[in-house]
Every structure is written in structure tokens, then in C-alpha cells.
Simulated scan of single mutants.
Amino acid sequence: MTLMQAVLRRLQLASGLVMLTYLFLHLLNHALGVWSLELAGRGLVLALRLWRSAPGTVALYGAACLHFALAIHTLYGRRHWSLPPAEWVRLWAGLSLPMLLVRHAVSTRLASTLYGFEPDYERVIVVLLTSGTQGLQLALLAPGWIHGNLGLWFRLRHYEWARRMKPALLAFMVLLPLLSAAGFIRMMRVVEAKGVRIAAVDPTLVAHQAELNAWRHDLLTLYFALIASAVILGRLRNSLERRRLSKRSLGA
């Protein structure tokens, strides 16, 4: 392994750990809803203080951009696509994660910065219920969690202590999303039991929903275009290299 490859691997690990920490706290916060909506709300306040602080903002969005750039580099540089099943699962899960981050960044951070929308669990759940996207919110958390845990396991599996702890680590990886889903579902039922109507959605957010949807659409379009470009250009490079090697072998 060259020095540059070692540096890139360390950057990938560091940025991945930051995002895995974000996902862990996000899932943990949802899981608090199993006990009460109020407890989850207090957890959300602490999470917002962490990720909206200057260090938290730089760490989260910097890690996301760096990890994505390294993923593009990896997709472009891949010489073949004969991958073991675990790698395919990790790849699928990793490519799903930015969809969650885009939705989160637009629906909460961008809405707060541009229009003053301050999220709490009740308001967020009302938005999800009225838009019919509550299932999508739950579905998008799991792939990122799977991707992060698989990536971390691929680094740790060479250590004896990690192999001994594999059953416990696997149980933790599975149980936390299940608890998170249970907490989120319970919070939705509590909000529905209160008889919250569409009118309860923040009027400022409603007024600017078209702009937020446009931001979300444009960012996701850019994301998919970059992924497709990296794969296509990588395949073209591989094809050109094979042709050069074939001409050299024929010339020899």
C-alpha cells in the first residue's frame, strides 16, 4: 500500500466514524421515544446543540463531503465489479446514506437557516405524517447504519478481541435500529392521539415548502449525476486501458 492510499484510508475511516456517530445519536434519540415523546425531545435539543455548534457543523458536513468525495474516487478507480455479497450490501447501504443526509439538511438545517423553522419531534412528525414520508424516514436510517457498521467491521475483524465480540456487536447493530423504529412509531401514535391536524404544520415551513422541495430535488439530482458519472467514466477508462494493453501485446 502506498503512502497516499494509507492516507486516503485513514481519511475514509475518520470521516466514516463521524457520520456513524451522527447516525448512532440519531437512532438513540428515536429510541428514547419508546419511553416518552418528552424524553426524546430533550435528547433532540442536546443533539441540535452538538451538531449546530461550529465544531459540530464543520465535523458533520465536512465528514460527509470528504466521505462522498472518497466514494466517488473509489467508484471511478474500481477495476472490476466482482465483489463479495457483504461488499455489495455495504456499497448499496453507503449510496443510500446521502439521501438521508440531503433530506435532513434541507428539512431541518436549511429550513432553519433560511426560514427560521426550529424542529422538535412533534413538529417533525406532523410534517412527516402530512407528507406521507414517515416510512421513508425510517427506511433511510437503516442503510447508513448498516454501511457504517460493515465498514467499521472490515477494519476491526483482523483483531482477535473484535472477533470474540462479534455476536455482541451484531446484536447491537440489529437492536438499536429496531428500538429506534419502535420509538419513532410510538411517538407518531402519541402525536396522532393528540388529534394534530395539517394546520398544525408550521405555516412558515408550508409557505416555503416548494423552495425546500426544489433544493432537495436539485441536490439529489446532482448526487445521482456524480455517482453515474464516476461509474461510467471509470468503465470507459478501464476499456481504454484494456485496448492499450491489447495493442501492446499484439505489437510485441
Rank of each mutant, 00 (worst) to 15 (best):
M187Q: 13
L179S: 07
A230P: 02
M173F: 04
M173G: 04
L233H: 02
A214P: 01
W215K: 02
V196P: 07
V190M: 09
P203M: 10
M187T: 02
V206H: 13
V231F: 01
Y223P: 00
S180T: 06
D218Y: 05
A199S: 14
L175A: 13
K194N: 15
L233Y: 00
D202V: 15
A214Q: 07
P177S: 07
A200T: 15
L220Q: 05
K194W: 13
A214C: 06
A207E: 13
L222G: 02
L219G: 03
I232F: 02
M188L: 11
M173A: 04
I198V: 15
L176S: 01
A182V: 01
A210S: 12
V206G: 09
H208C: 03
P177E: 06
A199K: 13
A230W: 00
G234R: 00
T221R: 06
L219N: 05
L178H: 10
T221L: 10
L178K: 10
D218L: 00
Y223D: 00
A181N: 11
A181S: 12
V174T: 08
L178Y: 05
V174S: 09
Y223G: 01
H217P: 01
G183V: 08
T221A: 01
A199R: 14
H208T: 10
I185Y: 06
V191M: 12
L233M: 04
Q209L: 15
R197Y: 12
A228T: 00
S180G: 09
F224L: 06
W215L: 07
L226I: 03
R189Q: 11
Q209P: 12
A182F: 09
E211R: 14
H217G: 02
A210C: 09
V174P: 05
Y223L: 01
I198H: 13
L175M: 09
G195H: 10
R197W: 12
V190I: 11
P203T: 12
A182C: 09
I185Q: 07
A181V: 07
W215R: 04
M188T: 10
I227A: 00
I232D: 02
I185L: 14
F184A: 00
R189P: 07
V206L: 15
L226W: 02
A199Q: 10
V191L: 09
A200F: 11
L212P: 05
T221Y: 05
F184C: 01
R216Y: 11
I185P: 02
N213V: 06
G183I: 10
V174G: 04
D202R: 14
F224Q: 06
A230V: 02
A207P: 08
F224P: 01
D202I: 15
G234K: 00
H217I: 04
I198D: 14
V196Q: 13
W215Y: 12
S180A: 12
L220F: 09
